[in-house]
Amino acid sequence: MPLDTSAYGLALLRVDGRRWNELRQMRAQMRTQASADGSSYLEMGNTKVMCVVAGPTEDGKLQQQRRAGGGGSGGGGAAPGSGGNAEVIVSIVVAGFSSVDRKKRTRNDKRILELQTTVCRGLAANLHTHLFPRSTIGVSLYVLAQDGSLLAALFNAATLALVDAGVPMADYLVACTAGSAPSLPPAARGGAAAAAADDAADPLIDLNAQEETELPWLTLATLGATDRVVALVCETRVPDARRLEAMMAAAADGCARVRAKLDRAVRRRGRRVLAGEGLGGAADVPATGGGDSDEDVGMDLDSDSDADAPQEEALKVLDRLEKETEGGKGKGKRKN
């Protein structure tokens, strides 16, 4: 179906056909792992993340797991509890097949450690850890596919899993990316036109991988529907402070919209549990799309087949990831 560009110039449409303030299609599920205290599966466009929460539990097993390094392709980042508060431990595993280059990341990879620290500190600031003294909350995140907005997807998936585990928190911790694109075409830039382009730069939200490689961008995490910033990560050079302010404002608006989508998924899951459905542990929270209404998703939200499709796909990929992890451990033992 061709895009309707009558009210919006074709030059202002992004690579995937979205406008500057449109989110990619989101699909969210809760209770994807029956044996875990809390679990979730989240898709933001082609970025796919699975999260498993263990705890709150007494110190012991998770402490030994952290000393062992967490295994797989990621280590563990911990926010130590102070004054008897619970300790939050975050482990991120990036599958080798999650990106095009199929790069295998080790547990001490610098990028993985940075993501773990950022997610861990953000969650620790939002959770009511004082209610669980001398205990541990373990959050394991598995990156199954990468197509931009990875840190935002990690925050959102962890929030859903923690809600599923019943861990008390102040509000939803949601995140969204934002970038800045010059409004002038490349042929018109240069000299005074370049300065004018910086003033009239267009902010973009929910960037994909291609946009992240070409534009300055940042990731903003806020608490609930408020503008209270919990985490702000900007790894690229922003030419002008005014563009940075516009990017942050656009990201905050995107966070509010993401929060509404996650809240819709949680409420729908709660209604099914109260109705006596989904108590066996299978994920049954349907998808939420890029539009503001259920009809914009392009799928039947009440269809059980559509609700179970992401879960089955995620479980197959997770099994494949665990096999690769076990194979890597076996090779390391043989070398020793």
Rank of each mutant, 00 (worst) to 15 (best):
L3R: 14
T5N: 09
S6A: 08
Y8A: 05
L13Q: 08
D16Q: 07
R18H: 07
R19K: 15
W20P: 09
E22A: 15
L23K: 05
M26L: 14
M26Q: 05
Q29L: 00
T32K: 00
A34E: 05
A36F: 01
G38S: 02
S40M: 00
S40Q: 01
Y41D: 01
M44R: 08
M44K: 06
N46A: 13
T47C: 00
K48A: 01
V52S: 01
V53D: 00
V53A: 00
G55P: 04
T57V: 15
E58L: 10
D59K: 10
L62V: 07
Q63I: 15
Q64P: 08
Q65N: 13
R66P: 06
A68F: 08
G69T: 08
G72L: 12
G76W: 11
G76T: 09
G77R: 03
S82G: 09
G84V: 06
A86R: 07
I92M: 07
V93Q: 14
G96A: 10
S98K: 02
S98V: 02
V100Q: 04
D101K: 10
D101M: 14
K104T: 14
T106E: 11
R111Y: 14
L113T: 15
R121A: 10
G122P: 03
A124W: 08
A125L: 04
N126V: 06
L127D: 02
L127R: 02
H128G: 10
T129R: 12
T129A: 12
T129G: 11
H130Y: 14
F132N: 09
P133S: 03
L141I: 07
A145E: 01
L150Y: 04
L154W: 05
N156A: 04
T159D: 01
L160F: 01
A161T: 00
L162N: 01
V163W: 03
V163L: 08
M169V: 03
A175M: 04
T177I: 03
P186A: 10
A187K: 14
A188P: 13
A192D: 14
A197W: 06
D198G: 13
D199Q: 11
D199M: 11
A201L: 06
D206N: 11
N208E: 02
E212S: 02
E212C: 01
L223P: 04
G224P: 05
D227K: 12
R228K: 12
R228P: 06
V229S: 08
V233S: 04
R237Q: 12
V238Q: 10
P239E: 05
R243M: 12
E245S: 09
M248I: 13
A250V: 03
C255P: 06
R257P: 03
L262T: 01
D263W: 06
R267D: 07
R268W: 05
R269F: 00
G270D: 06
R271L: 13
G278N: 02
D284S: 07
D284H: 07
V285C: 08
P286R: 03
P286N: 05
G289S: 11
D292I: 14
S293L: 13
S293R: 13
D294V: 13
D294W: 12
E295K: 09
G298H: 09
M299K: 11
D300Q: 15
D300T: 11
L301N: 12
L301Q: 15
D306S: 12
D306W: 08
D308H: 14
E312T: 07
L321E: 08
E324I: 14
E324P: 07
E326A: 14
E326C: 11
K329W: 15
K329H: 08
K331S: 14
K331F: 12
K331V: 14
K335V: 15
K335C: 12
